[in-house]
């Protein structure tokens, strides 16, 4: 009788645990990045990583801001927006391309440090301030040693050359 009771308690506890257990790290909708074909880096509790490109009613996710800009140059005609995660959770930097002209909020700086695509969410990011850029480089100094801040125009240029390389490979 006692054993049964203990068993029931265990089962109940297990059920509660399962019910409240978080789903595995939310790498939801496992589509690969349309540009680099690596997994789309997911948001973490500390930092947003998902880059979204909004084109009409489409909302396509990319692995990093450079991939999104590159694919915008390669695959999309017309106006679009890119929501690039910043150093602030839930507050992405909104980059727009309107009539072919790229724009972003004035204080935005980017990191465009050549790095393996697997880690490109660290090497290619947007920041709302220069100070945030410095903090990020310091935090990832092993990979980002010597990284310099770049402008939107510069990261667009890097993305364009990546498209050229991509076409050459194909």
């Amino acid at each position: 009788m006692k054993n049964r009771l203990v068993g029931k308690i265990w089962l109940g506890a297990l059920a509660i645990l399962l019910a409240f257990a978080p789903a595995r790290s939310g790498r939801a909708h496992e589509a690969k990045c349309p540009h680099c074909e690596a997994d789309v880096a997911q948001d973490t509790p500390e930092q947003d990583n998902e880059v979204a490109l909004k084109y009409g009613k489409k909302r396509i996710e990319y692995r990093c801001v450079m991939c999104a800009i590159a694919d915008a140059e390669k695959s999309y005609k017309g106006d679009l927006k890119i929501l690039a995660p910043s150093e602030k959770k839930g507050k992405p930097v909104e980059i727009s391309r309107i009539e072919g002209k790229w724009s972003a909020p004035e204080s935005t700086v980017f990191i465009g440090h050549k790095i393996k695509h697997r880690y490109c969410e660290r090497g290619y990011r947007a920041f709302t301030t220069m100070a945030a850029f410095t903090v990020h480089v310091e935090k990832n100094k092993a990979q980002l040693k010597g990284a310099k801040p770049i402008t939107l125009a510069e990261i667009v240029q890097i993305a364009k050359s990546d498209v050229v390389e991509d076409k050459k490979e194909k």
Partner: peptide
């Protein structure tokens, strides 16, 4: 328009 939020039931 799509919200970009994952469904609450989604499991990778």
């Amino acid at each position: 328009e799509v919200s970009g939020k994952k469904p609450d039931t989604y499991v990778k």
